[in-house]
C-alpha cells in the first residue's frame, strides 16, 4: 500500500464504518431512523467530543494526555461549588482550572523532559486531589433554578436543536480553525511528523507543546462544565470511565498516535462511531461495564491499524 492510498483509506474508512454502523443499528431498530433520534444521539456525543477534541492536538504531536477525565471531573466540581456565589463567572473559572492543569502537564513534560503519558498521569493525581478539595469529596448538586439561569446555553434548545450540538459545532469550527489555519496548527502537525526537523529549523517546540497541552486541559474543562450541566451535579468521579472512549474516538477517527496525521472532524466522526457502537450494544443488552471491554479492544485494534510504523524503530 502506498502512502497516498494509506492516507485516503484513513480518511474515508471512519466515515464508511460510521455509515455501516448506523445502517446495522437502524435495521435492528427502525425507530433509530428519525430526525429526533439523530439529534439526541448527536447531543449525547458532544461531551465526549469536546473532551477528545483537545486531546487530538496532543496526540497529533505524538504525545498523549491521560489527565482529561480527572480534569473534567475537577471542572465539574469547581462549577458546582462556586455557581451559587459567582454566577456566570464560575464557568470561566472551571475552564481556567482545566487550562491550568493542562499547562502544568505540558510544563512538566517539556521542561523536565518526562514522557507525556507519565507527566499527565502524575498531574491527574494532583487534579483528583484538587477535585476532592473543591467538592469536599462529595457530589455537589446544582439547583434547578441556577441551572436554568446560568447553564441554559449548554443544555437548552435553540431552533429545535439541542444546545449541546451548537456548543459542539462551535468548538468543532474553532478547533479546526486553530489546527488548520494558524501557524500553531502547522507546528503541531510538524512536531508530530518530524520533531527533530522542527527543532532544527529554530522553532521553540516546547512553547507549542505547552500550548497544545493547555488547550487539551481547557477543552476537558469545557467538557466537564457541559457534563455537570447535563447531570445537574459536580463530583470528583463524574468523568470516570471517559478517558478510554475519548482516546478511542480519536484513534477510531483515523488520527494516528504516532503523530502528524489527524484532524478535529475525524475525532468528531470517531466520537459518533463510539456513540453508535455504544447504542448498538445497549440495544443488544450489553451492560455498561461490559461495553468497557469492547472499547478496550477497539482501542487496541484501531491503534494497530492507524499507527505509522515507519516512524518508530523500536516499539516500547
Amino acid at each position: 500500500m502506498t502512502q497516498e492510498q494509506r492516507t485516503r483509506l484513513q480518511t474515508w474508512l471512519p466515515l464508511i464504518v460510521l455509515a455501516v454502523l448506523i445502517l446495522i443499528v437502524g435495521i435492528y431498530d427502525p425507530r433509530f431512523f428519525s430526525a429526533r433520534n439523530f439529534l439526541s444521539v448527536t447531543a449525547d456525543t458532544m461531551t465526549l467530543f469536546l473532551m477528545a477534541s483537545g486531546v487530538t492536538l496532543v496526540i497529533m504531536m505524538g504525545g498523549i494526555d491521560l489527565s482529561v477525565q480527572a480534569v473534567a471531573s475537577m471542572a465539574s466540581c469547581i462549577l458546582a461549588a462556586y455557581l451559587q456565589q459567582l454566577g456566570f463567572l464560575a464557568i470561566p473559572l472551571a475552564v481556567l482550572g482545566g487550562a491550568l492543569a493542562g499547562f502544568i502537564g505540558g510544563l512538566a513534560s517539556t521542561k523536565f523532559r518526562i514522557p507525556s503519558f507519565i507527566a499527565t498521569l502524575a498531574v491527574s493525581g494532583v487534579v483528583i486531589s484538587a477535585g476532592n478539595w473543591f467538592s469536599q469529596t462529595r457530589s455537589v448538586n446544582i439547583p434547578g433554578d441556577l441551572s436554568a439561569t446560568y447553564l441554559d446555553w449548554a443544555i437548552g434548545e435553540a431552533l429545535g436543536v439541542p444546545n449541546e450540538i451548537w456548543v459542539g459545532a462551535a468548538f468543532l469550527v474553532i478547533m479546526s480553525a486553530v489546527l488548520g489555519l494558524t501557524p500553531f496548527g502547522r507546528l503541531v502537525r510538524g512536531i508530530g511528523a518530524q520533531e527533530r526537523a522542527v527543532i532544527a529549523s529554530g522553532i521553540n517546540v516546547d512553547r507549542t507543546k505547552i500550548a497544545a497541552f493547555t488547550l487539551s486541559g481547557t477543552m476537558a474543562g469545557v467538557a466537564g462544565v457541559v457534563m455537570a450541566a447535563r447531570l445537574g451535579s459536580g463530583s470528583p468521579t463524574l468523568a470516570n470511565e471517559f478517558l478510554l472512549p475519548a482516546i478511542a474516538c480519536i484513534v477510531v477517527g483515523g488520527t494516528a498516535i504516532t503523530g502528524g496525521v489527524g484532524s478535529i472532524w475525524r475525532t468528531f466522526v470517531g466520537a459518533l462511531i463510539v456513540q453508535v457502537v455504544r447504542i448498538g450494544m445497549t440495544f443488544m443488552g450489553v451492560s455498561v461495564f461490559a461495553q468497557q471491554i469492547v472499547f478496550g479492544f477497539i482501542l487496541v485494534a484501531a491503534v494497530a491499524v492507524t499507527m505509522d510504523r515507519a516512524k518508530v524503530l523500536v516499539i516500547k
Binding site: I257, F289, Q292, I293, F295, G296, F297, V300, I315
Partner: peptide, 17 residues
C-alpha cells in the same frame, strides 16, 4: 506492534469491565 501504554490501557479497562 502497538505501544505498551496503549495496549495495556485497553486491556486494563477490559479487565475492570
Amino acid at each position: 506492534k502497538t505501544p505498551s501504554f496503549m495496549t495495556t490501557l485497553g486491556v486494563g479497562f477490559a479487565g475492570v469491565g
